[in-house]
Computed example of a mutant assay.
Amino acid sequence: MLATGIKTPVGIKIAGPKLKDIEEIGKSLEKILMTVPGTSSVYSERVAGGRYLKVDIQRKKAARYGLNIADVQQVVASAIGGMNVTQTVEGQERYPVNLRYPQDYRDSPEKLSRLPIVTPDGMRISLADVANVLIEDGPPGIKSENARINGWVFVDIEGADIGTYVQEAQRVVSEQLKIKSGYSIAWAGQYEYMLRAKEKLTFVVPLTLAIIVILLYLNFRNVAEVFIIMGTLPLAMVGSIWLMYLQGFNFSVAVGVGFIALAGVAVEIGVIMLVYLNQAIYSMYQTLLKENKPVTKADIQSAIIEGAGMRVRPVMMTAAAIIVGLLPILYGTGVGSEVMSRIAAPMVGGMASAVMLTLVVLPAVFILRK
């Protein structure tokens, strides 16, 4: 809401020159969007539904009595709207004293028409002698954006993610809604924020992966081992996807941030495992070289199993610490919990599958390479 001004997940901003036509387009959108699957409620602002009391001053009639526009407006402003004539002092407090006609004199256009006005000549006339008092329709409030008058449609959704819903809604609206020339609609709300975030994620995610690859290469100086970690990384996402499914979460910007964080932690654990596997292989080579024995498959498997076994406790401790630390955030309630739980969900679910990746898949892939 702070970013777009729309209170609901999805909003539509209708822009055009006339409020009446904007309201009609909004009513049409109400009927169309209620047929879209996932719509919980739709409300279009009644931008032309206000009721106003209008005092239309007749200049020629006022001139006959020696009155100008300002004189009549002064009577209307003071008698109907009220005027501060003085203030009362009560200790250190100050209260204004407002003076206007009683409610019985101004609760209908007919009574207002009989309000007395004193002319400069001392003649007493009624307001109806110099003005027409009537009630007319008008806008309760006028919004504008990009120098164009706006009307907003608020859409609540249920059982669907914002991106999928808006795609379907845009298709239905384009097929059923006919817009006059000079009018346009724009989709806003959380969807508008999601589009902006999606644009950023399109280069943030590849940049993150590129940085991870560079750091891995600087550490191992071996392209094959870098690809072993990066190739097995998607398996760490399996637990995240399952937990999101069980929790009923849809993909969002917060979930994307959680996946980025998970990728970093999963790679970190993989690096720890790969370092010890390399050390185990190196120690095995050194031992066999001293004993002048050939290297066999059994030797390689034995060394890798030994190296992986040394990392079971650190990997389990790392995963357990992350999961236990994030569980209160995942299942917490209160302000902001909707966002925080969606950041935590990929981390909690992903760490469970990352343990299997690190302890089972990574050593198996390393054996195949060796």
Rank of each mutant, 00 (worst) to 15 (best):
V85R: 05
L359S: 09
Q176W: 06
V275T: 15
R64I: 14
I323H: 08
I125W: 00
L243A: 03
A321M: 06
I117F: 07
D104R: 13
T333D: 08
L359Y: 09
G82D: 10
D104L: 06
V312W: 07
E110A: 10
A210E: 04
G334Q: 06
Q190N: 09
I343C: 04
V153G: 01
Q176S: 14
L112G: 11
G138Y: 00
T202K: 14
D129K: 14
T333N: 05
V355A: 05
K18P: 00
Q74C: 08
V335G: 01
Y285V: 03
Q176F: 04
K61S: 12
K31R: 12
G91M: 05
R46N: 10
R148F: 07
V348C: 10
A308G: 12
M347F: 09
M356P: 00
G264C: 09
R59D: 06
T287G: 00
P139E: 07
Q286N: 07
P116K: 14
S283I: 12
T202Y: 14
Y165M: 12
T202A: 15
A266R: 11
L330F: 06
L289R: 15
E192A: 13
R196A: 08
G309E: 05
S144N: 11
K54H: 11
M347E: 07
D129S: 13
V155I: 14
P17Q: 04
I135Q: 10
G239F: 07
R59C: 05
A266E: 10
G81A: 07
A236E: 07
N219Q: 10
E158D: 14
E23L: 03
G141S: 15
R369V: 12
N219V: 01
I228W: 03
Q73F: 07
R114F: 11
S240N: 06
N278F: 11
L330R: 05
T164Y: 11
T164P: 03
V205F: 11
A319C: 07
